[in-house]
Design a protein around this nucleic acid. Sequence first.
DNA 1: GCCCTCCGGTAATGTGCGTTACCATTGACA
DNA 2: TGTCAATGGTAACGCACATTACCGGAGGGC
Lengths: 212, 212
Amino acid sequence: MVAAKSGRTKRRREILLQAAAEVFFEQGYAATSIDAIIERAGGSKRNIYNEFGNKEGLFAAIVAENADKVLSTLAIEEIEGHDLEETLTAFGRRLMELYKSPTLIGIYRIAITETNRFPDLVKSFHEQGPGRATSRLAEVLEVARQRGEIRTADCLRVAGHFVGMIRDNLLQVILGIRPSPSDEESRVAVASAVEIFLNGVRPRQDKQTDRP
Amino acid sequence: MVAAKSGRTKRRREILLQAAAEVFFEQGYAATSIDAIIERAGGSKRNIYNEFGNKEGLFAAIVAENADKVLSTLAIEEIEGHDLEETLTAFGRRLMELYKSPTLIGIYRIAITETNRFPDLVKSFHEQGPGRATSRLAEVLEVARQRGEIRTADCLRVAGHFVGMIRDNLLQVILGIRPSPSDEESRVAVASAVEIFLNGVRPRQDKQTDRP
DNA sequence: GCCCTCCGGTAATGTGCGTTACCATTGACA
DNA sequence: TGTCAATGGTAACGCACATTACCGGAGGGC
């Protein structure tokens, strides 16, 4: 029965996490009751208390599971060989895609409110997920800077600017004012941000110093 | 007796709103108890129920009061005569200033979570406050575009980009990861965003997005 | 087949909280 | 100063909910 963890129990855990995430993201931490989660997941409360200890444990498990997903979606590795414009576009598209997922929206929503209750949790979520993606982008920009493709004093800062431009679309979605942008809208928004950003950081033309 | 609303009662109302805002912003709507508010404001619960009816009424009053403040801080009127760079810088500074205020951070924080509970309230907050500021910026950009100072297909979209760049600094503050930026940091961040933005949308002599 | 351990379900238990019933106090007006 | 209305305080009510006690049953080890 020790090995029982593999089959049923693991699957059960997934179901609980999924259901709990939905309710937490929809209602917020404080307003979510264990009963509501069970109502969605089936089974009984004992189930949750056996697996996660208590409400906080369940919540922590959810947040931890999702930071990884964010990070893996935003890894910039295979893109690095390409043109900067292509890289930024690809990165921007994926960022946009991510921001359209109800899960990430939910995580952000709840992280923002529960900062006081779970400071460490939120901090590590951001650092391991979104924050790391930004600093990875900054590294890419740093390489481009050394090649003279872009001109900037602070790669991390301008990476933040880029992410901010993409993320602007998110605020209204998070606030429930607008539905998630369509693929076409995303494409246009990313293209627009990339264009402005690249023009913005491109070396000035006064001397026409660098390449082609 | 009817006129009593003027003196004491009004002042009392202010104190209640202030204390309630602090607790709501700190703990979130669901986790805030009326007792906690009273503990901070003094007096008794009856006080709140007489003035605002119930918890929801109190919350609604807070949100409504603050949308105005946001909007008035971000009015772009007196700046219009100036250079576009000056206008953007001034607008960016004020935006940054606003995002440093605990009140606005609190409002955002709570608006983001309570979207499901108070959709209309949140919607009208955004439309009357931050949203309107962005569209006002878009109008300014439209004028600049007609003068040929900038080149863009969609002023509202790029206004969003600009606001997004500024707001990027806010996310980490809202998440409680970083303290509010100092005046100096704000200055630098705004200058950086303005520079990139202006270069980004400035008309170009030749097409250079495609390589030879 | 029998026992024993663990898992899951149900029904408490205790607490916190929004809301209200009820009473004391106050302050205006005659 | 006496009366009345409204305001502020206290204590109670009822409910929702996190957590746990208790119990039945399933399934592996002998």
